[in-house]
Simulated scan of single mutants.
Amino acid sequence: MERVTVTSPVFTGGGAIPAAYTCDGNDHNPPLHFSGVPKAARSLALIVDDPDAPAGTWVHWVVWNISPEGMIGENSVPAGATEGRNSWQRNRYGGPCPPSGTHRYYFKLYALDTIFALGPTTTAAELERVMAGHVIGRGELMGTYRRR
């Protein structure tokens, strides 16, 4: 499996996510850039989650059928991509909003050898199940957030 690099111009790996991209700000998704995507990739999928949530891993965003040549701009969904259901039961980005303490947020990118015909009620767990056997590259960016 090839290693994909995920970066953002607004925070560094392991660094703090700016409040503008959280429930304390505009709640917009941060811009994300990808490099090292395998040439054989037909699509990308992104799952953003918080493993530090009190009730278990909380999913903030689920997106698939992202163009392998693309990136994700601030407050946008790439053309042709589909958003799935997050833990708030919404089909959109929901920014960090920890009830207490500092939480880690993982932006996990998967390079896939296929394009999926999945509906908008698809959850991260369901996406992970159908991706099994189709992941040819992977990368992640972790940022932290603590409410003031």
Rank of each mutant, 00 (worst) to 15 (best):
A53M: 05
L46H: 04
W58K: 12
P51G: 04
T57A: 15
D50C: 00
K39D: 03
H60A: 10
I66A: 04
S43T: 14
V48S: 08
A53V: 03
G56V: 08
V59D: 06
S43I: 07
P38D: 00
A45N: 08
N65H: 14
A41G: 09
P38H: 02
V59Y: 15
D50A: 10
L44R: 01
T57Q: 15
A41C: 09
W61S: 06
K39W: 01
A45H: 14
A55E: 14
A41K: 11
A45D: 12
P54H: 06
W64S: 09
S67C: 02
V63Q: 05
V63M: 01
P54T: 11
V48H: 08
V59F: 11
A55S: 15
K39Q: 04
L46K: 07
L44H: 09
A41S: 12
M71S: 14
A55D: 15
P51W: 06
D49T: 07
P54V: 13
A55L: 15
E69Y: 09
D50Q: 05
W58D: 03
P38G: 02
V48G: 02
M71C: 10
L44G: 12
E69P: 00
V59I: 14
K39T: 10
D50H: 02
K39E: 03
W61E: 04
T57V: 14
P68F: 12
A45M: 10
P68G: 01
